[in-house]
């Protein structure tokens, strides 16, 4: 079975999804990712889905679950590069990606992760976030 590579970059885990996902694949990814977080002690996860043309309710839910798992293991998840059509579909399906951060592209996503982690470390410096 095809598997999706998980790259470790500094404190982060980087996942780019280049093929159309099917259910087994994303479940395998969820499994592997949680293991990787524990093993590497990663603080942030970036999932790039810019190549993904179809997201169904199951994949949407698993992505949200991945984020919840990561949160439990003290890592933040950013999903980047969602296409307009996919975003519309997700909204129509009523999938709320609670707990998942989003960004327009991988670069912005990385910046966002940096921001969030930075904010956590120096939380006492930030009285309020706008």
């Amino acid at each position: 079975m095809e598997r999706i590579p998980i790259l470790k970059v500094g404190q982060y885990l980087l996942i780019t999804i280049q093929v159309d996902l099917h259910d087994k694949m994303i479940l395998a990814l969820q499994d592997e990712l949680t293991n990787m977080i524990v093993k590497t002690g990663a603080r942030g996860i970036l999932i790039d889905i810019s190549a993904l043309e179809i997201v169904d309710s199951f994949i949407g839910r698993v992505l949200a679950q991945v984020a919840s798992c990561a949160k439990l293991l003290d890592a933040e998840t950013v999903v980047t590069g969602m296409r307009p059509a996919v975003a519309i579909t997700m909204v129509e399906l009523g999938i709320s990606m609670k707990g998942v951060h989003t960004a327009l592209n991988a670069e912005d996503g990385m910046e966002l992760l940096n921001d969030i982690l930075h904010r956590d470390e120096y939380a006492h410096d930030f009285s309020a976030i706008n």
């Binding site: 969602m82 307009p84 975003a87 997700m90 989003t102 327009l104």
Partner: peptide, 12 residues
């Protein structure tokens, strides 16, 4: 709210 959520999914 739908429009806002869709934009949010794209990080805006």
């Amino acid at each position: 709210i739908k429009t806002v959520s869709a934009a949010k999914l794209m990080g805006t």
